[in-house]
Computed example of a mutant assay.
Amino acid sequence: MAGLLDGLRILVLEDEILIAMDVEQICRDDGAAHVVIARTLEEAEAAASDSSFDAAIIDLRLGSVSTLPFAARLRDRGVPFVFASGYTSLGEIGVSFPGAKIVGKPYAGDDILAALAEARAQIV
């Protein structure tokens, strides 16, 4: 049975390595061809400039640093993404990214996959 991510290239922007590795495995198990983990905005920017991605999973905050500017750049490039966050006050996302897919932490793999599929369907 084909996975939702078969053959896709996925960027995971997450500063907690165990969570990032878990998300990477979820994506690979679902058929992603290439998964890149970035733990800082600098790593994410470098990865995004070196490669094109079919979708991204973005933690809302990396420590005290907001990832919203990076998400805006992905949106401008037409790259679908979902936010994965442990923060409960997500009003800032609704204002800047109406309709954005948000998956609360802790989350199940199916939650991430379903949100990515929805985000990709909105762009395609």
Rank of each mutant, 00 (worst) to 15 (best):
S96Q: 15
A55G: 02
S51L: 14
A100D: 04
A46H: 09
T88P: 11
S96I: 14
G94V: 04
G104N: 14
R61E: 06
F97M: 05
A84L: 08
A55I: 01
R73H: 12
V103N: 07
L62E: 03
D59N: 07
R75H: 13
D50Q: 15
A100P: 01
T88H: 15
F70V: 09
E45D: 14
V65N: 10
V103Y: 07
V95A: 11
G78F: 11
F53P: 05
G86M: 03
A56C: 06
V65H: 11
D76H: 11
S89H: 15
R75Y: 08
D76V: 01
K105Q: 12
S66L: 10
S66N: 04
F81I: 01
P98E: 03
A46G: 09
A47V: 08
A56Q: 05
S89M: 15
S96Y: 15
R73D: 12
V82M: 00
V82N: 00
A71S: 05
A44G: 03
V79H: 05
S89Q: 15
A84W: 02
V95C: 02
P98I: 04
D76Q: 14
A56H: 03
D54Q: 07
I58N: 03
L68H: 12
L62P: 07
F53N: 06
L60I: 10
F70I: 06
E45Y: 12
G63V: 02
G99C: 05
V65T: 15
V95D: 04
S85W: 08
P69H: 08
V95R: 10
S96W: 14
D59Q: 04
K105G: 10
L62D: 02
R77D: 03
